[in-house]
């Protein structure tokens, strides 16, 4: 069953009309309703507020990392574990082929349904998850495979064990190592880009965001509680933090926004997955004639020139 957000109720109504017309085999009505549906979707999605975009980014029908991996990665094998402590299920790593290109994929994986949510720890990695990701990234470098990283997490897990095993260092180490990883790297925020836990797989030659994804230093809930001292100010905080793909592109903090199908990735996973695959492959091709030193220098300059200050 599809899930509809409160601002999508009109869309749901028309969708129901389409279905009932289909059941009646009323071909004319189906056609009319489908046109209505298109118009309604276009209208609704044209004027989303930042808070509505946040809701879409967290939509439970939105494709998660594994949904994308299952669609775009062929002849794939999963690699497991950080070789030290555990196999963190909140991060998945795969080797395979995207449109024929050998590729390593790292993804933060949220679970669908209670059982899977628990298994995936709601997409909140522990240090061993980031260390597994780093191991996969180093393997990609060693075998000269481009690396695709899919970001989707509320944040790194805030737990006792995570702190004991040095969550801070796991994230920091990835930031340092990924800044110099000698292969083409692409990070895409597919849903929620939650703070340092997202950035830990977000350091790359290109950082892109899906149209309805967000990237933020703190969750709007956390921000409203701390800065406004009022948990009900979530919408205000969402707006103030400028976390939508269009805002972050305007601020030049991300390189590209990947368009989603008109009805959103949550209603057309195939379309969204192909958009990511196309973006990844065209990025890899764009670096074909760039030496690895030049590519790493460009990455370094991009990473170190971020900032807004006066002098």
């Amino acid at each position: 069953m599809a899930t509809y957000l409160d601002f999508e109720q009109k869309i749901k109504q028309i969708q129901d009309d389409v279905i009932s017309a289909e059941v009646r085999h009323d071909v004319n009505a189906v056609e009319i309703f489908k046109k209505d549906l298109e118009k309604e979707v276009a209208k609704t999605y044209k004027n989303l507020s930042p808070y509505q975009e946040l809701q879409l980014a967290r939509h439970q029908d939105r494709p998660y990392a594994l949904d994308y991996i299952n669609i775009i990665l062929e002849d794939k094998y999963e690699i497991h574990g950080d070789r030290h402590f555990a196999d963190d299920q909140a991060i998945v790593c795969y080797i395979g082929y995207i449109q024929g290109q050998r590729t390593m994929v790292i993804g933060e994986q949220k679970g669908r349904g209670t059982k899977n949510k628990l298994k995936r720890n709601f997409g909140m990695p522990n240090p061993e998850g980031y260390r597994k990701a780093l191991r996969a990234a180093k393997m990609a470098e060693k075998f000269n495979m481009p690396l695709l990283m899919l970001i989707d997490t509320p944040g790194a897990y805030p737990g006792l064990g995570a702190e004991e095993r040095n969550q801070s260092e796991a994230i920091a180490r990835n930031l340092l190592e990924l800044s110099q990883l000698d292969t083409v790297t692409v990070s895409v925020v597919i849903g929620e880009g939650g703070s340092g836990g997202a950035l830990a797989i977000g350091v790359a030659d290109k950082l892109a965001m899906m149209r309805y994804s967000v990237f933020s230093v703190i969750s709007p809930e956390g921000c409203s509680a701390i800065l406004w001292n009022d948990p009900s100010k979530v919408e205000t905080a969402t707006k103030a933090l400028k976390i939508t793909s269009s805002d972050l592109k305007d601020l030049d903090l991300v390189d590209d926004v990947i368009d989603e199908p008109l009805i959103g990735a949550h209603r057309d996973r195939e379309g969204a997955a192909n958009a990511i695959a196309d973006y990844f492959i065209s990025t890899v091709i764009s670096y074909k004639d760039t030496s690895s030193k030049d590519r790493l220098d460009q990455r370094y300059i991009r990473l170190t020139s971020v900032g807004a200050f006066s002098e």
Binding site: V203, K242, G307
Partner: peptide
């Protein structure tokens, strides 16, 4: 916000 976050990678 994200400007601050990205000082970590910088």
């Amino acid at each position: 916000s994200t400007f601050a976050l990205m000082q970590m990678s910088k």
